[in-house]
Each structure stands twice: as C-alpha cells, then as structure tokens.
C-alpha cells in the first residue's frame, strides 16, 4: 500500500481548494484514471466542507488528510477533532424530494459521497479524533 500524508494541521474554508488540488496531484502521480481522481477530489471537497462548516462551525480546527493507493483501490482517510459524527449512520436522502419547492436540500454532500465511493467507514479514537475513510475500487 502506497501511503501519503497530504496534510496535517489547522484548516478553515479557505484551505479546501488547495487540499483538493494536493489530493488530485497525489492521486494522478500514482497513475489513477481521471474518473477516480475526480470522484475522490469531490469526496474531499464534500467531507472537508462538512467538517469546517459543521464540526468546527467556521473556525479553524485540526485536520489530517491521508491517501492510500494499491493496485485495486484508492482510499482517502480524513481525521478531525470535531464532535463525534459517524457518516455511516446518516440515512440516505431521496434525491427526488430535494427538488420539490418545499424541500430542504441538506445532506446532499453526504449523498454525493455515498454515490462516489464503494465503501466508507468510521471510527472514533479515545483521544477525541474522528476518522472517516472513503474507498473506491480501481478499474
């Protein structure tokens, strides 16, 4: 497994663009196809914006972003120190309901993540870190 730490340190909303670019660069360097790279970059955007906006409520907070790649899969793991939040326990939303005039479009980001990855997992460490990992099979 080829593992690379993309980032470790404080983040806010203004850092997400650069972290997307660093992730894309790392994935492309490892020879991943455009579709896999683009999909995982979207996952990074969605999950980091979730952490920054909800876990850290717009303030700066600690984050670690790691990418693991082998012949059959690419895996992104993101750690944060926000309140416990298990992405695997979030209910899927019905997209058909999102576009009705009365609908609240929250949850779109997590739904997008679900549809772009083959597997996701979550763990919470005793020292207060959430770790969410997103795996996509490589064709």
């Amino acid at each position: 497994m080829d593992s690379i730490c993309i980032y470790s340190g404080e983040v806010d909303i203004n850092d997400i663009h650069d972290l997307r670019q660093h992730t894309e660069h790392a994935l492309k360097q490892r020879g991943l196809d455009d579709d896999t790279c683009a999909s995982l970059v979207i996952v990074v955007e969605e999950w980091l914006s979730n952490i920054v906006n909800y876990a850290y409520q717009g303030k700066k907070g600690e984050l670690e972003l790691k990418v693991d790649v082998n012949d059959s899969q690419a895996r992104i793991c993101i750690r944060d120190q926000g309140p416990e939040f298990n992405i695997t326990s979030v209910k899927a939303i019905q997209i058909k309901d999102v576009n009705s005039p009365d609908a609240k479009p929250g949850g779109l980001g997590i739904e997008l993540i679900r549809r772009l990855v083959d597997d996701l997992d979550y763990s919470r460490s005793e020292d207060g870190w959430n770790q969410s990992c997103f795996r996509r099979n490589i064709q």
Partner: peptide
C-alpha cells in the same frame, strides 16, 4: 472545472426562486 453539492444547492435555490 469543479462543482460540489454546495454549487448544486445554489442552483436548486435559484430554481425555486424563479418558480415562485
């Protein structure tokens, strides 16, 4: 060259406003 769910949400909100 990039769009995320926040972008779709903005389009969705705009769509609802024009429908009104």
């Amino acid at each position: 060259n990039f769009i995320g769910s926040a972008g779709l949400r903005a389009i969705h909100t705009t769509s609802n406003s024009t429908k009104e």
